[in-house]
Design a protein around this nucleic acid. Sequence first.
DNA 1: TTGAATTTTCAGTATTTATTGAAAGTAGAA
DNA 2: TTCTACTTTCAATAAATACTGAAAATTCAA
Lengths: 197, 197
Amino acid sequence: MKTSSDDQQLAAARDEFVSQWGAMGSAWGINRTMAQIHALLFTSAEPLSTDEVMADLKISRGNAHSNLRELAGWGLVRSVIRKGERKEYFEAEKDIWQMFCIIARERKRREITPALQALQNCTAQTKGLKSKSARAFHGQLKELTDFVDLCDRLMETVARIQKGAAVNFTLKFLKATKSPAQALGLHSQLESLEGKR
Amino acid sequence: MKTSSDDQQLAAARDEFVSQWGAMGSAWGINRTMAQIHALLFTSAEPLSTDEVMADLKISRGNAHSNLRELAGWGLVRSVIRKGERKEYFEAEKDIWQMFCIIARERKRREITPALQALQNCTAQTKGLKSKSARAFHGQLKELTDFVDLCDRLMETVARIQKGAAVNFTLKFLKATKSPAQALGLHSQLESLEGKR
DNA sequence: TTGAATTTTCAGTATTTATTGAAAGTAGAA
DNA sequence: TTCTACTTTCAATAAATACTGAAAATTCAA
């Protein structure tokens, strides 16, 4: 029967996606289950209850619960209360750019900004030292700190702009950078800066 | 005595940096020890031997060995043979932009590209399906796939350009995006794209 | 109030990942 | 060759992380 086979196809593809997204998460330091739940909700037309998540992924209540809470803490998932029902349902942010911005902002807040502060401390602590090795260390750390600082700001800024702007800008950037850069307004910036290092 | 206190300061700052870099690594899915060894070599004026790394971090030979190999596999560290000496020494890539490019390329190669292929598979597998939920799934996955694809390309491209170009470009981008975007060539791109979402 | 439905917590356990250390392997010097 | 300095491997173990499930807490309707 056609529909049944289609359903199977869909189920298979979704399982694959959930598993893949989980793997990707864990490669980037995110709890596999949390990423899987996110994948599930991200591709679900309807909000899901804790029990549905448990059943879908075959995980315990405690596990489902704590990862749903964590996702809510990131702002990637919000809870939905259906009128007349007592149970809590969850839905994911579906807009990809929005999702990207949330992740960028959270990782910045949780990891990059604190790390940057620590780096700045280390750099400051070795500011006045005179020995050759201390000066070398300080110089190296200063460069790293400045670089991380720049990334931090870039992330902040990117996460603020509109989806259309970001995508279109990226496309132009890619085009402009492909082979001898020319075309577009990027031209002057890029050209005047090439070959400096 | 002045020098001794300076040395202590330096040692303390370096320990702090090593520990911090290790923490950062593990938040991003990189073995803590590998990141610590990297931090050590990154701020060492001289190449270090396996034994020196072992002593500095108080880790076993096997651990030092395998993580040094892994770092070499990433291309972040290379081995140095000193003439007359039999022992192998290791030094890190010191240029930060270079280092960033290496990491970007490796993560792209190891994680993003494979994940992208899997996503494209899932998307393709649900291409023709007619049911409402299948169509929703396919649409959502298509968007995600396209987005990851764009990131993949962007990474590739960024990792190719010159340090000066990247930094300067970023600075201009930040400036241009601060408050009502104007100035620079970015103006037209940005303005024409704001408010789309 | 009471009690059923639901959420939350957390001690115990399982799984995964990282580390040790000693034995085996290699390669250069004599 | 053989000796020695050094590197590599890997089974055993430890440490970190994630998960379970059942008991306690909460919430809401009657």
